[in-house]
Design a protein around this nucleic acid. Structure first.
Ligand SMILES: [Mn+2]
Ligand SMILES: [Mn+2]
Ligand SMILES: [Zn+2]
Ligand SMILES: [Zn+2]
Lengths: 135, 135
DNA sequence: TATAAATTTGTATTTATTACAATCTAATCC
DNA sequence: GGATTAGATTGTAATAAATACAAATTTATA
């Protein structure tokens, strides 16, 4: 928790219980949870937590580079404690998102001369091993 | 138009004015338009066209591999006539999506052993050259 | 401890998408 | 060609994620 507090201070953000809680949640739940999931989980032990706060906090933390978000499911934002570039696999069957390692990480390349790049993503969509077994 | 009709037949889909129109629209508007944009444009010359039909048709055409869709903006589905794997750049400033060529096309790699892959995407987010100039 | 700025909260609103039932149409068969 | 029917389109209602906003609360600073 001390570390999160320091991160917030470095970014000029006030330390609040909510921000610490969300950072901790994402750090310990590397499952790319949706806002809804985060909300349900946190709310269960902290009923006064507001969903709007989660939206606000996710936006703030992301804007300051402390977390990242994914839009690969098409229906909701998914959150990620990791901010370094890495790749994902989205299983349509169980709705889970997995981190994947690729031999060839994504590189800008000459086709992007003149573009200012903020984010790089690559991902796969399909069915994960566990779901394949069930069928 | 003859070609679209043949494509539909090959997939066992009925030929309808709406499907031909949407295929033609996407073929001639390689701008990754949203459903809303497609709707506005088509409706202007064909007021009876329904937005639901566009949603339905996009889904059907995609399911049969005749078009593809992107979810990279986070707020709406964007449509693409191209179905072969290629990469994208999303400009947050003008909301446009550009096709980009990369030296290294995305490859599954050993990190995805056991996964069944339906789609592969990679994309960049940032500011396009035109928007950079304006600032 | 008092203060100001920032944050949280609850509610209302917006927007994209889906559900659904009635109507219509394309393909098939006579 | 005309009747049949499965499939497609349409309009409306419903859902769900995300945003807007203002009041209440809290943090950091003095
Ligand atoms: Mn991740
Ligand atoms: Mn494209
Ligand atoms: Zn799965
Ligand atoms: Zn731009």
């Amino acid at each position: 928790m001390q570390f999160y507090q320091q991160q917030l201070k470095e970014k000029g953000l006030k330390t609040t219980y909510q921000r610490l809680k969300i950072l901790d949640y994402l750090d310990t739940h590397r499952t790319h949870p949706s806002v809804e999931i985060i909300y349900e989980d946190i709310k269960s032990e902290n009923p006064s937590f507001s969903k709007t706060t989660i939206y606000n906090t996710i936006e703030t933390l992301k804007a300051h580079g402390l977390i990242s978000t994914l839009t690969i499911t098409g229906s909701e934002v998914r959150c990620d404690y990791k901010t370094d570039m890495h790749h994902h696999f989205y299983c349509r069957s169980c709705n889970r998102i997995f981190d994947v390692d690729l031999e060839q990480p994504l590189q800008p390349g000459s086709g992007l001369q003149g573009y200012a790049i903020d984010e790089m993503h690559s991902y796969f969509i399909g069915t994960c091993p566990a779901c394949l077994k069930k069928k």
